[in-house]
């Protein structure tokens, strides 16, 4: 993971990550288009083969694993469009990354307002 600032648990998307994740982020950027989202759902392997992803990026896409996607160079703004295909929002992906249940993650958010 990009350790640009060395803040624990806090990816910083700099040049090295942007270069490493270019193909993955390009695929996710293209998910702005509903036709591309539909094409992914119809033939996932065929669709991802068009983008030249690395094996690690393909595995992370197949696993729907956000931390692995970030490790593989994904940027959360583009990844959010991938998550959107499955109807997942930022609480869902927050819960997945922190290992919390959705309810526990939402409670964690609310607790910080006390």
């Amino acid at each position: 993971m990009d350790d640009l600032y060395g803040i624990p648990g806090t990816p910083v998307f700099g040049g090295a990550q942007a270069a490493k994740g270019y193909a993955l982020n390009k695929m996710c950027f293209d998910f702005n288009d509903a036709a591309n989202r539909a094409a992914f759902l119809k033939d996932e392997e065929g669709w991802i083969s068009r983008y030249g992803l690395t094996d690690a990026q393909k595995a992370a896409i197949r696993a729907r694993n956000v931390l692995q996607l970030i490790e593989a160079g994904g940027n959360v703004y583009y990844l959010a469009k991938f998550a959107g295909i499955f109807g997942l929002n930022v609480q869902d992906i927050g819960a997945q990354q922190t290992g919390m249940s959705i309810e526990a993650f939402k409670a964690h958010l609310a607790a910080q307002g006390k």
Partner: peptide
């Protein structure tokens, strides 16, 4: 706010 990483969900009121 923070959306990514294991510190996702961080808010500093």
């Amino acid at each position: 706010h923070q959306l990514d990483g294991t510190r996702a969900g961080f808010i500093n009121k």
